[in-house]
Amino acid sequence: MDFTWIPEYQNLLLHGVFLTFLLLAISVPLGFGLAIFLAIAQVGDNPIARWISKGYCTFFRGTPLLIQLWLIYYGLGSYLPYIPGLRASFLWPVLREGLFFATLALTLNFAAYQGEILRGAMLAVPKGELEAARAVGMSPGMILRRIWLPRAIRIGLPTFAGEVVLQLKATPIVFSVTVMDLYGAAYKIRQDTLLVYEPLLLVTVFYVTLTFVITQVFQKLENAVPVRR
């Protein structure tokens, strides 16, 4: 085992850790926000919205993330330059980067899985609570905001930690679209130093630790939001 390369590649590794965190910190909240709309559309009355939401979830849950990522990076990416004015705009430096497409793919993918969970959670909210809200004269929007969604999110909370861990485990895939996240850094180190195991081992330790931290944080969060059974 040879770990003498660590100081030399310190910056690359730290930047990789930063990108991994960034991918997670953007895709999880944005994906969760999108998931709320997907879940509402699926339990709502509008058949078109329900149909679109169902189709979206089926597509993103039924195909590999790798294909979605390549579809967005190579497929969508190849059309972007043809949109007039985009190339000259201030957005172009961001839109040109693999990181943008990677975040987009991870967000859309996370939203599909989380949306399906939230749909189940919304259906699991006891009917009596919604009826009580209606009985005190709350408007449908207010019921959704004050009763239905908060209760559904609390019901779905135990699975949320698992979903975030799954999302963390999905992030290394972005190295295939030139994003130098932690795994990308390890990949480069392997190519440079011809060491097969050591970089992978270091990265593995990081992912396992982060998984542990995430589960602990959510355990705390779950305990902080009491629920009566």
């Binding site: 039924g62 195909t63 294909i67 390549w70 190579y74």
Partner: peptide, 13 residues
């Protein structure tokens, strides 16, 4: 790219 990745996605689906 669009055509073939969509075709692959359809096969996976």
């Amino acid at each position: 790219y669009m055509v073939f990745f969509l075709a692959a996605a359809a096969l996976y689906l």
